[in-house]
């Protein structure tokens, strides 16, 4: 056996390994993909079924006829547009406030060297570990005394003071920018506020976009806070309204699936429109501080 054939054997086996690997990876991907896709298929197909095909064995895979009217019925059954308006009434200001206030605070935690900064920052980091339940009861009492129950204020007002997680995220981003940017500006006599607003803010756009996106989706999905604070039906956001509908009309599965689809579609569209920001944002959350 010459050296030559040996290496060619090795090359061949390596190639075979490579092929096996690609096939295996593809197979696994398809298998997992199938499992992930099944509930989506079930969501859509159920949402288009006439009522008498829901409870049938064997299962009806493709509804006959396709009931587009389920969607029309769903938005009437659940006051969908009222709930949508409510959700936006909460999510839009909450998103704007969180983004602005968090970036403001993040600037103070990253671009100014002040005594005690790191200690205070540690406090901020540790608040992320605090379960919501610890502050839930006293906050309810505070908002009750303010007369804010059954309004959106308990959900929106706290966002004026920045979110710990987003402050952290923007701070990480700001730390990665070179310091001389603002040193130069300071020498020129710029005020900190102007440095923040005119120099730093534009540079942090990617982090701000991520913050805005994640906050918006967070508030779109938020369930516990409205569950605690909102009492009357016509003030419910979508998440609460959908749950309520499910509880009342338990087994109207076709309409429930139609409503769930309608609640999901805007987020999916948002996801596709901003995929890059989105994925980067999620990935950023994993970067160690």
């Amino acid at each position: 056996m010459t050296l030559n054939t040996l290496s060619s054997n090795r090359w061949r086996s390596k190639r075979r390994q490579e092929i096996v690997r690609v096939v295996l990876v593809t197979l696994l991907r398809v298998a997992l993909g199938f499992m992930v896709a099944v509930p989506f298929f079930w969501l859509v197909t159920t949402s288009l079924k006439p009522e008498n095909q829901l409870f049938r064995v064997p299962v009806v895979w493709i509804p006959q006829p396709i009931m587009w009217s389920n969607y029309v019925r769903a938005v009437q059954y659940i006051p969908f547009f009222t709930y949508l308006k409510n959700t936006l009434t909460i999510a839009v200001p909450a998103t704007v406030f969180t983004t602005v206030s968090s970036s403001f605070v993040a600037y103070g935690f990253s671009r100014i060297q002040w005594p005690g900064r790191d200690a205070v920052f540690m406090v901020l980091i540790s608040t992320m570990m605090l379960p919501y339940q610890v502050t839930m009861v006293p906050l309810f009492v505070v908002f009750k005394n303010l007369g804010w129950i059954d309004t959106y204020r308990p959900l929106v007002v706290p966002t004026l003071f920045g979110g710990a997680f987003y402050i952290f995220l923007i701070r990480q981003f700001l730390m990665s920018l070179p310091m001389d940017l603002q040193d130069a500006a300071r020498i020129d006599g710029c005020s900190e506020l102007r440095i923040y607003a005119q120099i730093m803010l534009p540079l942090t756009k990617p982090a701000l976009a991520t913050t805005a996106l994640l906050t918006f989706i967070g508030y779109w999905n938020e369930f516990l806070m409205p569950l605690i604070y909102i009492n009357t039906n016509d003030k419910f956001p979508l998440a609460l309204g959908l749950q309520q509908f499910q509880r009342q009309y338990g087994a109207e599965w076709a309409l429930l699936m139609a409503a769930s689809t309608l609640m999901t579609i805007p987020i999916i569209i948002l996801f596709f429109a901003t995929q890059k920001t989105f994925i980067r944002g999620i990935a950023l959350t994993g970067i160690k501080g």
């Binding site: 997992l32 993909g33 992930v36 896709a37 099944v38 509930p39 989506f40 079930w42 969501l43 159920t46 989706i217 779109w220 999905n221 369930f223 979508l238 998440a239 609460l240 959908l242 749950q243 499910q246 599965w253 429930l256 699936m257 409503a259 769930s260 689809t261 609640m263 999901t264 987020i267 999916i268 996801f271 994925i279």
Partner: peptide
């Protein structure tokens, strides 16, 4: 595809899985 389920709102996903 793998990522998509995690953007489905939790309440919608829960309702869906009751039926799934």
């Amino acid at each position: 595809l793998f990522y998509l389920p995690s953007v489905v709102p939790t309440v919608a996903a829960s309702v869906l899985w009751m039926w799934v």
